[in-house]
Amino acid sequence: ERQLGFSVYRRVTILMLVFGTVLMLVISSWLTKPIRLLTRATKRMAAGDYGYRARQISNDELGQLTTDFNHMANVLEENINKLEEEIQAREDFVAAFAHELKTPLTAIIGYADMLRSRKLDEEKSFLSANYIYTEGKRLEAMSLRLLDIIVTKKEEVQFQLVPAASLFDYLKDMFASHTEMEFHFQYESGMVRAEANLIKSVLVNLLDNACKASEPGSPIEVRGKLTERGYRFEVKDVGVGIPREEQKNITKAFYMVDKSRSRSKNGAGLGLALCAEILLLHGSKLEIESEPGKGSCISFVLPDKGGME
């Protein structure tokens, strides 16, 4: 009986040890599961799967750690996507720039070679020289606007109080010789806080675009008025207009709605890109109302602070 009792005792002890070991393994597995899930998520993200997230299975400290990890992963994925978009934008910019350079340069080289041959009559020689000149001027304007965009992004702007009337007077003088269009100026007196030369550049670009989009003799309205948000500038034409799906892209460098029309009028798709950068410095942006075949109204508001704190 003693031997039987000892055997039973030993078996019970072994069973208890086995049960205790299994129980400890289960508890250990349950306690460490969040860590294993986080480890798996870390490895997946390290391998490039930035959309993978750790599964939260508890509300304790480890659960909070999982939440924080997933929040960090969201921010990381967002930043990576932004970097990829910026890289793509730069590649698109370089490709567009190369294309914009290639087209006029090919023509310039071709016409220059024809002139060099001395086999053209006087009229064809003049046409060739004129084409070289106009394409050269387009390249010059494109390079200057590119430079303006680069400088605008890097330089600090000095804001001053400027009479709005002085800006409109400048436009009247600039476009006085542009007799093909019918300009109408209407504006209210007021002061704007801005860098005058930069805002003049914006307005000149808007009027220049309105002229390119319009047929000769078309009216172009240039307006200015005080609003609750600040001083509002508007340039309105009755030209070709901009399709709604294109409007979000027109401030991208080298983007042109109608490439053939823009190139025929020495456009390179840089004017509105420059305007957008300048207005960003002033705490403003372009507002576009347009309908194909009926024209466009492009405006912006200089806030009372004019970009100043």
Rank of each mutant, 00 (worst) to 15 (best):
E100V: 01
E100M: 01
E100W: 00
T103K: 09
L105G: 04
T106W: 02
I108F: 01
I108E: 09
M114H: 08
L115G: 10
L115V: 05
K119P: 02
L120D: 14
E122G: 00
K124Q: 13
K124T: 01
S128E: 11
S128T: 13
S128V: 09
A129K: 07
A129Q: 14
Y131M: 15
I132T: 12
T134C: 03
E135S: 12
G136D: 08
G136K: 13
E140V: 00
A141D: 15
M142V: 03
S143L: 10
R145V: 02
R145G: 08
R145S: 11
L146N: 13
D148P: 01
I149T: 01
I149R: 09
I149G: 07
T152I: 04
T152R: 07
K154I: 08
V162A: 09
S166A: 10
D169E: 15
L171G: 06
K172P: 06
F175L: 08
F175H: 09
A176M: 09
S177P: 00
T179E: 14
E182R: 12
F183S: 03
F183P: 07
H184A: 12
Y187W: 06
E188L: 01
R193D: 13
A194V: 15
L198C: 03
L198N: 12
I199K: 10
S201G: 06
S201D: 14
N205V: 11
L206W: 04
L206H: 06
S214A: 07
S214H: 08
S214E: 11
S214P: 07
S214Q: 07
E215W: 10
P216D: 14
P216A: 10
G217R: 10
I220W: 04
E221D: 14
V222I: 14
V222N: 01
R223I: 00
G224L: 05
E228P: 00
E228Q: 03
G230M: 04
G230T: 02
R232A: 02
F233S: 04
